[in-house]
Design a binder for these strands. Structure first.
Lengths: 200, 200
DNA sequence: ACTTGACAATATAGCGCCATATTGTCTAGA
DNA sequence: TCTAGACAATATGGCGCTATATTGTCAAGT
């Protein structure tokens, strides 16, 4: 692969991602059914036919947009977890926010539609990413001094990760503002990390 | 009020509550719309007209059944919280389970219907009970040694209670079995109570 | 005090039909 | 490589209609 094709591939890839970003925005606002290919094309600044040249159909576009969104969120969460310069508490908060916080304030009446479409069109992907998130959180905990306390409390890092994730889900469904969400996540993370701030 | 009327009132009240119990079961299984007065009457072992002698209409029956269910759950939660012989962790677990755990495994396709009907027919009652639950949890925390740690962590008992409640909500929506739910609640409660098990 | 059987009023589910919106595909062209 | 315009196939929402189920209310009986 020479320079030209590499550059072209990179540019085409960038364009591809930009389209997916636009699609994510439109799907998030209108849900799966009420979002039209026309709307997505306009948001991406291209023609409707341009979309069909890149994606076989609406379902495929949705699948890729969903996967891109999940990928972005998971990548950001992993990045947050790997900032070992920060304390575990800050990393957990940032990770949960990156993973679950993005669409907190903006879920309308189409939320059920989105969840339904996501599970029916890419349920496996969805659960796979969620599981990867929990595993990464569990690893971060296992590689921290908190791991020792877990054992003492007859718990494993995986348990903490799962419950942290459940808390994020609960907050997502009950919080109106993102600030509220972050506040809630901060509370769990801080309490989970409490053993680190005391002499054991 | 003499003995006879008092006894009669008590018996009538017991009957009333038994009918509400039956109604709760039917509504929980079928949702609001798909549950028929006929079904409730059969479950309560009485005639459909008997229901209309006690409740003005279906909405009123639902409101009272919901309130009775909330009342039962809140009462059980308060009782759990007041068992000061137990440690805070056990009390928090029992309280969350009593408040949120009852219908964990049994939520079918009519769950949305139930939530929608509940909020539209008795939204104020719903939020009032939820708020009372959180306040009671907050009080239990404030009256425990954990209160001191809260202050040190720049948090208040109310924050912990709210987040605990959010965790219960998240678990309720993601757990398939009640055991799973209790396990998740145990994890948060144990970690929240961690500061009590260490020398500060 | 509750049941039974009946009743009209109303809600619900299903169906077909129509108008419209959207999808997915094509051709021609910049 | 993308756009523009057109196209059939299909999905969707609305409307009227029918059949059925359910609600809410009777009168009569126990």
């Amino acid at each position: 692969m020479n320079m030209v094709t590499a550059t072209e591939a990179a540019r085409s890839d960038t364009r591809h991602l930009a389209v997916l970003e636009a699609a994510v925005g439109v799907f998030a606002r209108y849900g799966f059914r009420k979002a039209s290919m026309d709307e997505v094309a306009r948001a991406a600044g291209m023609s409707r036919q341009g979309l069909y040249l890149q994606f076989a159909n609406k379902e495929e576009l949705f699948r890729q947009a969903l996967q891109h969104s999940l990928d972005t969120q998971l990548t950001a969460a992993l990045a947050a977890l790997s900032r070992t310069a920060d304390g575990l508490e800050a990393r957990l908060i940032a990770a949960c926010d990156a993973w679950s916080g993005r669409f907190v304030g903006s879920q309308g009446a189409d939320a059920t539609d989105l969840m339904c479409a996501s599970t029916s069109l890419a349920g496996a992907t969805l659960t796979r990413y969620a599981s990867e998130f929990e595993s990464a959180v569990a690893r971060a905990i296992a590689n921290s001094p908190l791991d020792a306390y877990c054992a003492k409390a007859d718990l494993c890092p995986k348990d903490l990760a799962r419950t942290l994730h459940a808390t994020a889900r609960g907050l997502k469904q009950s919080c109106v503002t993102r600030a509220e969400f972050v506040k809630g996540v901060t509370v769990v993370a801080r309490m989970f990390c409490a053993p680190l701030n005391q002499r054991g």
